[in-house]
Every structure is written in C-alpha cells, then in structure tokens.
C-alpha cells in the first residue's frame, strides 16, 4: 500500500509522546508453489508507551504474521521482504542473532493464541518461567524460582503450582501461566495474539480483567490481536483494522466504534451483536477475501464493497481523513491518488 507521505508525520501521535515501537511498510510473503503469498503488504503503525493497540481482522488477514514478524519468529516459508520495525531507534529486522535474542522477551514478549500449545508439555511451569529469566539475566536458580512464584501470584495462580506440568492445569490457568511467562522480564511491550480465543466466555472474561489489571499496575503497552472486535472495545486505546494484508483503518477505539469510516470496518461491526441496546439485524460481509498470490490491482476490498465506485480500481492511500483517524478508501478525498481523482472526474 502506498503511504501518503504528506501526512505520515502526524500519524495521530500526540506531541511529546514518542512511539515505543514503530512498524514501517512491513511486507511479509509466504513462498508457495503458486508464487509468493503477500500475507502482509505494506503495514505501518506505531504503539505508544502504555498504550493498548488493537489489531483486528478476519482469519488470514495477516494479523498474526505481523505479530510474529515483530519478534522475527516467522517460520519458513515466510520471509520478510520489506520494511522496518523500530524499537528504541534500532531496526529489529537488522539485528544479528545475538542482538535479536537479547531483544526478544526483554523488550517485547508474546502471549500466544492457544495456551495448551504454547507451553512445553514436558517442562514444569516454574522451569518455563525461570529459563526465560535466566536466558537474559544472571540470576541464581533460587532467586529465579522466587521470582517465578511471585509472577504466578501476580497472575492469580497459587505459588504452589510452580512444579505443575501444563496438563495439570485448567485452560484458564494455563493461559494465566503463559501471561506470567510473558511478564517474566517486565517488558515494555506485550503482544497478545488472540489470548482468549480458545477459552470459554466466563474464563475469557476473567483473563481479560486480569490483563487490564496487570496493565494498570505495570504500565506496559499491549498489541492486542483478535478477530473479535467486541473484545477490543473494552481494552484498546486505538484500533487498527486489517484486511487482506493491509491496514485499512486506524483510529481511536471510541471513534472507530462510533464513526467507522471504511466500509469493511462497518461490515465487521455489523457482524457481531452489540451487548446492550436495540436488536439489530446482523448483516455480515458477503464474499470472501481475495487471493493474496494475485491480489486485485486496486482496493482489495472493492469486490465485496457495497459502496464501490469508479476510482476503486486504483489503490487508495492510507491517509488521515480526520485528525488521528486514518483510512484507506476512495470515499474520502484524502485517500485519492491523482489517478483516482481523474477516474471520478471522467465519470
């Protein structure tokens, strides 16, 4: 996606708040026999200190790929082909293996989607916390264990469970344990990739409130990834909406909910029922996302878009339509390229 250079400086960042991490024009491809799948295609956003950034989109839109690219834990055949991930002024994508291993977990930790699968089944919870600590800090085993017990208490697990194996814990406890591991080094940023998806609603609620409490107490930033927009309402400061490998809209959480600009965001909103208020008819979005081996030339949502018109055959700019509210859609003059304007005039 093209970046509107004239507005990229503002990016909605209030004066004085330097971003904690900045992702610039990130592109990730999965090499396949049919050709490269452009899973992430020019994603730009930042996260400020203490902020909760929500990243939402349907399955396969590339949101988890963004998360894994930040920590550079993508597995082949995925390759990062372009972009920068700036943390503290250092580009993570340029780091040597040693630098990378130091950076991981100390600066950015991650809570994975399925707690059952993200814990090593043959190691105790305690060992999985202490090995993260000891990989980064010289600390005697005794002290690391004390720290592990403390972490378990923080997330609401009895310290006695430190010698438990993952299969001895319930689903909710496992996800808490994973969060405890993520907190081990007190990182300024935590990526949470669908942390509650595999849990039932009650446990989901508990985990979400634990996350909010910890964020209040410890003040870390969160990149919260989910396909469930309703989860983001409560927790996020800003929300980015991803579609087919690109961010199509980014705004304050409140504003995005009250006045979504992109037709795709609109469609997402009407795909789930509001918890309170009147009954509404759920409409959903007809069609399915485009093939990312051969993405359409113009706007990627055009084929499914109820408000498609002439300029949509060219790519919209991701530009600020309102202060702090960026969108990539030709409905808004800021997003139109000269080519798009031409198309509108011709008609």
């Amino acid at each position: 996606m093209a970046i509107a250079t004239e507005t990229s400086n503002s990016q909605g960042t209030p004066a004085g708040a330097a971003p904690l991490i900045r992702i610039e024009d990130l592109k990730v491809q999965y090499l396949s026999p049919r050709g490269p799948v452009r899973a992430v295609d020019g994603v730009t956003f930042d996260i400020r200190p203490g902020e909760v950034m929500g990243l939402a989109g349907e399955s396969g839109c590339g949101k988890s790929t963004v998360a894994q690219a930040i920590l550079r834990i993508l597995q082949p055949p995925a390759v990062i082909t372009n972009g920068r991930v700036l943390f503290d002024g250092n580009d993570i994508l340029d780091m040597s293996d040693d630098q990378l291993n130091e950076f991981r977990w100390r600066d950015v930790s991650m809570v994975f989607q399925s707690a059952m699968n993200s814990l090593n089944p043959v190691m105790t919870i305690g060992d999985q916390i202490t090995d993260a600590i000891q990989a980064h800090q010289r600390m005697p085993g005794r002290k690391a264990l004390e720290r592990a017990e403390e972490l378990l208490r923080i997330v609401g697990i009895e310290a006695a469970r430190i010698d438990s194996y993952p299969h001895q814990l319930s689903g909710g406890m496992r996800q808490r344990a994973v969060i405890a591991i993520a907190l081990a080094l007190n990182p300024p940023l935590m990526i949470m990739d669908e942390p509650t998806t595999a849990l039932d609603v009650v446990v989901q609620k508990e985990i979400m409130s634990t996350i909010s409490r910890l964020k209040q107490e410890l003040g870390f930033s969160i990149l919260f990834i989910t396909h469930d927009l309703s989860l983001l309402v409560e927790i996020s400061d800003r929300i980015a909406i991803m579609y087919a490998g690109q961010i199509v809209e980014l705004a304050n959480a409140r504003e995005l909910f009250e006045q979504p600009l992109h037709p795709y965001t609109n469609g997402l909103m009407s795909s789930f029922p509001p918890l309170t208020g009147d009954r509404v008819k759920l409409s959903g979005i007809p069609g399915s996302p485009p093939d990312l081996v051969h993405p359409p030339a113009g706007c990627r949502f055009a084929a499914r878009c109820p408000r498609r018109f002439e300029p949509c055959g060219s790519e919209p700019l991701f530009a600020e339509a309102k202060p702090g509210h960026r969108v990539a859609c030709h409905l808004y003059p800021e997003s139109r390229t000269p080519q798009a304007q031409e198309a509108i005039r011709e008609h």
């Binding site: 930790s109 090593n120 190691m123 990989a135 591991i181």
Partner: peptide, 24 residues
C-alpha cells in the same frame, strides 16, 4: 507453538533445539 514461544523468549538455540523441540 511452544517451540515458537521458546524462540520468542530469546533462549539460546541449543536450548530451544534440545529442551523444547527434541525433548518432545
């Protein structure tokens, strides 16, 4: 996922390879 998480934790390669992947 647990191997990916072990890598994300910044553990030394050898530990990821033996304690997380090979052990299982």
């Amino acid at each position: 996922d647990y191997v990916m998480m072990a890598e994300a934790k910044g553990l030394p390669q050898r530990r990821v390879m033996f304690n997380y992947a090979a052990r299982n």
